[in-house]
Structures are given as C-alpha cells and as structure tokens.
C-alpha cells in the first residue's frame, strides 16, 4: 500500500459559473510524504483540497483519494481536514470541540478520552482544555483546530493554509507536528503561500490560476530553474508558462 498513490487527479476541472478555478490538473501523490501545494491566493488550492476532502464535486475529470473517486463518504474516515478558517465551535470548550469531532468520526468511549488527552498534550493545550474556544488566543485556536483534524487518526491529512496568519514561532511548531505525523505514517497534503515553508515538503506542486505549472522535489525544481531560492523558481516556471 505504501507505494500506491494516495491522491490521483485526472484532468480535474472545476468551474464556478464562468470562472474556471481548476483547468485540468493531472497529478499523483505517493503515500507517506508531505506534499506541498504552492500558489498565490486564488490559484485554486482551496478548491482542489475541497474536492479531495469530498465537499465539492469536480466539474469534469476525476479526483481519486485512496483509490476511490471523490466525493465518496466511505473514505471520509481516513481523511483529516483542517480548513483555512479555524472552524471550531466558539461556545464549546477546547476539549468539547475535540470530543465532538472525534464522535462524528465514530471514535468514542475510553479510546476517545485517550486520543483527546494525547492530542491536547501534542499541541500543548492540556491546561486550557476546559476553556471556551472564544476565550483562548488565536494561536491556541489554530492548534486546537489541528488537533480536531487528528482525533480519528486519519491516514491522510489535508491542511488548507494551516500557517496563514500564524506567528513564526507557531509556524515552526506546526511544521514540527507535521514531521512527527509523517514519521508516524500519515500522508500530508498542505497548501501554503509561504514559499519559505515549501522547502520542508518532500514534493511540491506549483499552482497558478488553476493550472499546475510544475511538480517535483523542491531541490530539483530549484535546479531546473537555475534559481537560488524556491521563490525565484516559482517565478521562473510562472513566466515560462505565460509568455
């Protein structure tokens, strides 16, 4: 299973009225790695992740997750999804949020209690577990939000700009969590527009205006573009595409 693609896109298109948000994307993401989806705002990252998470339907083409064409509720339990917004119930406590998301994924009883404890420990919120989400800081909410995407031990994690608007210290922390998760066998698809983070991914896809400009290992991309930085590489591929 490990060498099988966890995500496969075949000519994936998504239209919203006249606007084509995804213009036919072909891509294969192998299991067990951190895959970075890089692109400016409005490039189609969120649209792509929503289709993979089974929320949105492709207009044409297909998106396979764990071999199943999306949307398919049967793979939902294998996916952890962290939205761009915090997406927590502000009038519930941190712990109650975690328990709720655990339970809708079918985790319950002693197992749920154990997972909640572990995750609160991981994201460093053990002492704030009984605080209302409304009363904790923005950074804590981000961490709680990540924990909520992990309660059901997904094999696959879709993270939509998890570090947007997050202070540098917490960003480093987040990437350390991701590292630990992939070491534990979780595959991660993470979108970001911070190019400095892209270097920490195993593979990158460069997305611009609904098109996949280039895809590959960060180091190779940089070499091919003969660029010092990934930023410069991104600009190189973007320019090459649109003469």
């Amino acid at each position: 299973m490990a060498d099988e693609a966890i995500v496969r896109l075949e000519g994936l298109k998504k239209r919203f009225g006249k606007i084509e948000a995804l213009k036919g994307i072909d891509l294969e993401i192998p299991a067990g790695i951190t895959y970075g989806l890089i692109g400016p705002n409005g490039s189609g990252k969120t649209t792509l992740i929503r289709i993979l998470a089974g929320i949105s339907r492709p207009s044409s083409g297909a998106a396979f997750v764990l071999g199943r064409p999306m949307p398919d509720r049967s793979v939902a339990a294998s996916i952890g999804y962290m939205t761009q917004a915090e997406a927590l119930y502000k009038d519930l406590t941190v712990e109650e949020n975690l328990r709720f998301f655990g339970r809708i994924y079918g985790v319950s009883g002693a197992l749920l209690r154990q997972r909640v404890d572990e995750l609160l420990e991981l994201v460093g919120l053990s002492d704030r577990r009984r605080s209302l989400v409304d009363e904790v800081s923005g950074g804590m909410r981000r961490r709680a939000s990540l924990a909520c995407a992990l309660v059901h031990r997904p094999r696959l994690l879709f993270l939509d700009e998890p570090t947007a608007g997050v202070d540098p210290e917490l960003r480093i922390q987040f990437w350390n969590y991701f590292k630990r998760l992939t070491t534990g066998g979780v595959s991660i698809l993470v979108s970001t527009h911070h190019l400095d983070e892209a270097g920490r991914c195993d593979r990158l896809g460069l997305l611009r205006e609904g098109e996949l400009l280039k895809e590959g290992v960060p180091e190779e991309l940089r070499r091919e573009a003969q660029a010092e930085t990934l930023e410069a590489a991104f600009l190189y591929f973007a320019r090459r595409r649109s003469p």
């Binding site: 998470a53 999804y81 939205t83 761009q84 915090e86 997406a87 927590l88 998301f101 909520c148």
Partner: peptide
C-alpha cells in the same frame, strides 16, 4: 465559522 466544512468532510 467554517464548521460546516468539517461536517461535510466527515
């Protein structure tokens, strides 16, 4: 608050 997204993905 975006929790609908989470429910739909669940």
């Amino acid at each position: 608050q975006g929790t609908m997204e989470r429910l739909l993905a669940s």
